[in-house]
């Protein structure tokens, strides 16, 4: 393995609790070189899953968070200057392609559609990356893999992928974990008692029932871990939930009050 991508190796196991047989499916897809797309609501464990898989498969993971401002050269690289003249500098995608790492493009639909077409020749039988500025064709290292993630819930109205981009990927759907498992995850991540973790998870479940009834997304597992963390730091349950779950989720006073009602249904009326 090249020294250039060694720092991207994940040394310790990231905690991950599987929803189904996604580990098996994903390993098989990686084995066959199939580009993968993971989608699901925010804070349900997509990124954690990818980190876990990179650790499991012992491949370096190069992550890139996409945004509207991103240009193709931010992905593939550009010429820079030094004392002698211009030098080519590989972008994160080229780095992964050249030396064989997993390239993970987070929130992929946030990037503009004309930026994302550079991945097209990488994701079919050709497996090449054309660096037009350099006049170079980079053939992908056998270990190179491409993974993208996005959240179909709130983004799809305004932003979407081109069908020609979409069709190159296999897709795994993520959702929030079943109750017992989510309790276990929250308890593990925050070191809170499982009794309190259960109460938090039930608050989240009630909030998820409001999805599409005023809320874009319910309370996520990530928010639960945050709230549980505050409770471990001996913040009262009501305050922890208000700070880490209710207030960030909505600005609407009616929904805010309803969410506090769900907290009350688990932890009792606030003194």
């Amino acid at each position: 393995m090249s020294n250039l991508i060694k720092p991207y190796l994940i040394e310790t196991e990231p905690y991950y609790s599987a929803q189904g047989d996604e580990i098996k499916i994903f390993s098989a897809a990686i084995e066959r070189g199939l580009p993968m797309m993971v989608k699901g609501p925010t804070g349900c464990g997509k990124t954690r899953f990818i980190e876990h898989m990179a650790w499991r498969l012992k491949r370096p993971l190069i992550t890139m968070a996409c945004n509207e401002d991103m240009s193709a050269s931010d992905l593939v690289g550009r010429f820079l200057l030094d004392a002698q003249g211009t030098v080519w500098h590989d972008g994160p995608l080229t780095l992964a392609v050249r030396y064989g790492a997993i390239c993970y493009l987070d929130e992929f639909v946030e990037a503009r559609q004309d930026t994302t077409v550079v991945i097209h020749p990488l994701t079919d039988h050709r497996r090449i990356l054309a660096l037009d500025k350099r006049g170079e064709i980079v053939r992908a290292h056998p270990d190179f893999r491409l993974i993208v993630s996005y959240n179909p819930g709130y983004q799809s109205a305004a932003k979407d992928m081109k069908p020609s981009t979409r069709q190159r990927f296999g897709a795994i759907n993520f959702d929030f974990l079943p109750r017992a498992q989510e309790i276990q995850v929250v308890a593990h991540e925050s070191k809170i008692s499982s009794e309190h973790a259960e109460r938090l998870v039930r608050v989240a479940e009630q909030s998820r029932a409001l999805r599409g009834r005023g809320l874009d997304e319910g309370i996520s597992t990530r928010m639960l871990v945050h709230a549980a963390g505050l409770m471990v730091e001996s913040i009262s349950a009501h305050d922890a939930c208000a700070i880490a779950m209710v207030a960030p989720l909505t600005d609407d006073p009616d929904l805010h009050a309803a969410l506090l009602g769900f907290v009350e249904a688990q932890f009792g009326p606030k003194e």
Partner: peptide
């Protein structure tokens, strides 16, 4: 009323 309607939805009664 709007707040209570959301509260009721949280219990799965829509």
């Amino acid at each position: 009323r709007d707040m209570l309607q959301s509260y009721l939805s949280g219990f799965g009664v829509n």
